[in-house]
Design a protein around this nucleic acid. Structure first.
Lengths: 217, 217
DNA sequence: GTGAGGATCTATCGAAAGGTGGACGACTGG
DNA sequence: CCAGTCGTCCACCTTTCGATAGATCCTCAC
């Protein structure tokens, strides 16, 4: 079963080069190409490729925006972001938008082909040249490791903290736990005391800073 | 110039296998091995290897804790985390602690050797099997781009939101702005109205989710 | 100028949150 | 066995918050 690929690049030379490289493989079939983001989205939605190889720098709708559109689609293809420019904004933007892989254009053809296969297998791939920066950024964004303080919280308190940090009022938490509001107030109070906090807002902040709750994508 | 490597693994068989694989390469020299995290840290600090190949699951001080120690050292070696168990906790924990690469133990010897070279070159490397999960988590952690909604807030309101999201009470915000508390209440109220939120806790969450305030590293 | 609109400030009042004290069952180590 | 600890629960009372109405000040268009 061949891998159906869409190639999007505004420069015809690059587009044809990519097509030649990929079509040279027996298990890969470039079914369509596009010269800008809008066309890539349109073609991808109608032709349903397995993998989209997307240049990030394109006129009109750029690659990152196009990736965002594709990621929002129903049967979203796996997108391999490709760029000449090794900029943080491209790397992080593409991954944030939903790219499954990221390669610099100076990569070997074999690497590109291997990347397409990896993506088709449901795996991801990051150019080793930029992996270090991704890791650094990831570490900077990551919640701190759970602090010993969290062991202080009982399961009930932990649960209340999660609900609290999602913005529920005491009454709503009480309803969710089928308890009286007064009870929830005690739990909240013990949470604040144990963690050395003053108000429920501090508790919500604490939950975010310690990764007890995570942003929903 | 050879790459000086430390191999840390609690199982002697694995340790020797790694040593054989790596020492078989002309440009790699396994200078020392360790059987637990504490020994790895100690040896690394005295022998100063270029690269540390670290099993994550070890008795006593485990690999992740050891990576954290090494990362805190002055001339920290590049750490390649190695594990049999494909658990999020291991992957994210190791990268957070400061690992420069992450491989599953079922990787080919060539991949391992290549990874050591990549790390020595200052680059990073993530096992393709887990790259997808790293990207997903990264995307989930990344702040969303500033939303147009924020243009709705006046400078005063924006400032109040920042203070609110740091946990200040209305009274404290009032003091910080040299205004009456009643005034702050109005600002908070307008913020909630404009952003479609219900309580100050929601506002704090909103600020975190939209990157108006950021976790301090 | 002047009037419309927005930003900032203030005051009041019902609703929610927070502090405190205490009750009850469950588990634990003399 | 039973005393002590811990988790969970509830009610009372004070403080803070949130909704509302209105006062100034500014500026920009007409």
């Amino acid at each position: 079963m061949t891998i159906r690929v869409l190639v999007a690049d505004d420069q015809e030379a690059a587009r044809e080069a990519l097509r030649l490289i990929l079509d040279g493989e027996p298990d890969i079939d470039v079914i369509v190409t596009a010269a800008d983001g809008a066309e890539a989205v349109h073609q991808a939605l109608s032709r349903r490729p397995d993998v989209v190889v997307m240049d990030l720098r394109m006129p009109g709708m750029d690659g990152i925006a196009a990736i965002g559109r594709l990621a929002a689609a129903e049967s979203a293809p796996r997108v391999l972001a490709l760029t000449t420019f090794d900029l943080d904004e491209y790397l992080f933007g593409a991954l944030r938008a939903g790219a499954a892989g990221f390669l610099l254009k100076d990569s070997d053809p074999d690497v590109l082909v291997a990347a397409v296969r990896e993506l088709h297998q449901g795996r991801g791939l990051i150019d080793p040249q930029v992996t270090g920066r991704l890791i650094s950024r990831f570490a900077a964004l990551s919640p701190r490791p759970a602090t010993p303080e969290l062991d202080l919280l009982t399961p009930r308190e932990h649960h209340v903290l999660r609900l609290l940090a999602r913005g529920l009022s005491n009454g709503e938490i009480a309803a969710a736990c089928t308890v009286e509001e007064g009870t929830v107030k005690t739990h909240v109070n013990r949470i604040l005391t144990k963690l050395g906090l003053r108000t429920r807002v501090h508790a919500a902040i604490y939950a975010y800073e310690h990764g007890i709750v995570t942003r929903v994508p």
